[in-house]
Design a protein around this nucleic acid. Structure first.
Lengths: 223, 223, 223, 223
DNA sequence: GATGAATGAGCGTTCATTCAT
DNA sequence: AATGAATGAACGCTCATTCAT
């Protein structure tokens, strides 16, 4: 996570990385290990072994450790952005839109278990390695939320979009991040389908409660 | 973060680690560096240099890298538990108790900026090394919340203490964890006194909103 | 410069290497890079890239890195031998022959700037790989000088052809080798046309001075 | 020969590198290998093996490959400068001073066989690695020669100190550099005491011949 | 208590070379 | 003739840890 500034594509062939079997093996292995241990605990050797390929081949396809990891994150961010974008599109009442957005967010998390951990690991990290990418990703999410709920949220202050953005994404992401720890604290497995469903209900209840009050307070202020 | 199986105390002398000036220097240096860079970016050399002591002395006092880092975390967990325990003690209405607890939580965070990051780093990190400590810490917090609000919270389901515990701690902790990223996304600095105050207002508003609805729904259910 | 034991010709086809366009591209690229950076700083990738061909093709045509480099040197030695041979041919007084030989030597150097550096690099390099080639090259030059000036030079001792051979080739070659360093030490650029001309005058003056004394001493000895 | 800019002393202890037995072993091994093969053919492993120490210890003492090599060269340059400085000091006729300087130069070469090879290797090298050091070294030698013979040499042109500097140092250095190659071309071993003596006689004869003519021409010009 | 010296294991990366196609 | 893919060996370097003093 230190060298390499050039994000220029390293591998150049007729078949893009995405369709080379070996490259995908590597990408997948890196993905798994990254989520399991975080970037600093994953060596190129680990990845090569898990992918069942020669260590040098990783460099052949991805140029460097940094670029490989960027590639892994990039894929997540892309599908994340896509999923969220789709969820925020479309009309309906505020309640409907909130419900839809949160469902989409949780859907994405459910089918990309490691995303939460990856994000937290990158955020907790201090060396600015992937920060620009994360920042762009969060920025996009933040903008979506801000424009979508501009009617009910004040521009500034404790009830501005800024804070709800942190609050909601924290409520969603941290559940997955904490999962391993919670397994010991709770009696149930937090990643079981039942518990995931329960969590979803919790977050939806929370969002609804917040939205309801915001609307009420908004009306009262108008009157 | 690799070796070290034995958690057995290494240092054995009349004076406990806490009262040796040199040991405290090391502990302090490790603390700072851990918060600045996260465990993977801190080497024993870094710590020795910042503490102004010989590298080998760290091993003399703490046995291993792992044990040193455990010691650092241990101290945080202790003061964290103490601060929170104090806040939850005492009576008053539910609203008052909630407000007090959240203020205490945020007070602790404000004066221990690095705690949030340390916790998140440890949680995101899956090497099972520190898990027991983290688990014990969360467990304690969880129990406090559970017993304190047993009147308003159902034992099971989406509105049980389990979920509110995750929700509230996420809302508090993540703000600090995200700070570095948010600085780029927002216009203001999230760690400025004004923004911290604003965040506090937000979390209090959130807690109050939640509590209010819980009480209302509780009354309605009773009726 | 490590492996390669077999000097056996690798490429076997109807068209000799010299007439294949791709092979010539490679040879040319290797030539340039060798002169620019020296053998140890030139990788097969570099050559392939500069030549605009596939890396594996170099092995197809030249068998190995060592053999490619040998080929490059071989061509230089050939043209070097040819140029010098021509210069030594023909009669005239000793002074005239010396002047002609030195002019030819310097002409060759001027139009093959990299030769000096290549030779020095190979000589300084002690891996015995290219030694036979270099030796053959020097031997030829040495024989030319010895037979040409047998009238004025004793067969043995400090004034034998052996030493003048080293002395003169050093005076010619080192100027080019040192050029890069001299640029910093002198005020002028040692490779500018003016300085090259000045150097030529210097070497001619030197050769004339030496020859003159040799002839004088020879006459005196006879008398 | 790539990284590391800082020439700052790496090793810091009460006993300087020069007096640590292990450090001297390393320095000596590096010295030998450098002279035998040139910098690019010498790996840290090679040095460690020849010195009989652990590879990591080299880094402990010297910080980096570059710094180790710099140290090796530094020692040569220092003793070289010292030897030459001493030789040029003192009065006498031009002939005496020339003879003394050349003797000193050759004495140094005789007892530092590898110096010549090291210098040529560095000069032939293109990457500016040690160039500043070499340049400073040559500069010093050049200045000595220039001030010492300012009476007999014109300031500019083919007979200026510049050219005689190249000519004489080439005649001295190249003999040692070419030694390995010459061994095959000549019948005798160029590094045997007898041949070294013969070479010395040659260079002295050369210097005397040059000086004599310079003085004669100088007189004639005055008249 | 305190430290300089020493080490084995591992890191990310580059390389010449091979080979199936 | 030409090439993308693949690999084993080596590289310079850092690290946590040990140990004699």
């Amino acid at each position: 996570m230190t060298q390499a500034k050039e994000t220029t594509q390293f591998h150049r062939s007729k078949t893009p990385i995405e369709t080379s079997a070996r490259a995908l093996q590597i990408l997948h292995a890196a993905d798994e290990l990254l989520a399991e241990r975080g970037p600093d605990q994953v060596s190129m050797r680990d990845i090569a072994e898990r992918a069942g390929v020669n260590k040098a081949l990783i460099f052949y396809y991805f140029g460097s450790r940094t670029q490989l990891f960027e590639k892994v994150l990039e894929r997540y961010y892309k599908s994340h952005a896509k999923a969220l974008g789709a969820a925020f599109a479309g009309g309906g009442t505020v309640h409907e839109r909130v419900r839809r957005a949160i469902d989409a967010y949780l859907d994405f998390m459910d089918s990309n278990h490691l995303f939460a951990r990856l994000v937290m690991q990158e955020v907790a990290h201090q060396d600015d390695g992937q920060l620009p990418q994360i920042r762009a990703n969060l920025q996009q999410l933040f903008e979506l939320l801000k424009t979508e709920f501009q009617d009910v949220l004040p521009k500034e202050g404790p009830l501005s979009a800024k804070h709800f953005f942190v609050t909601l994404s924290a409520c969603v992401i941290n559940y997955y991040t904490y999962a391993k720890v919670l397994r010991g604290v709770w009696s149930a497995d937090p990643t079981s389908p039942e518990m995931l469903k329960e969590r979803r209900a919790h977050v939806q209840w929370l969002a609804e409660t917040i939205t309801t009050r915001l609307i009420q307070d908004g009306r009262r202020a108008e009157a």
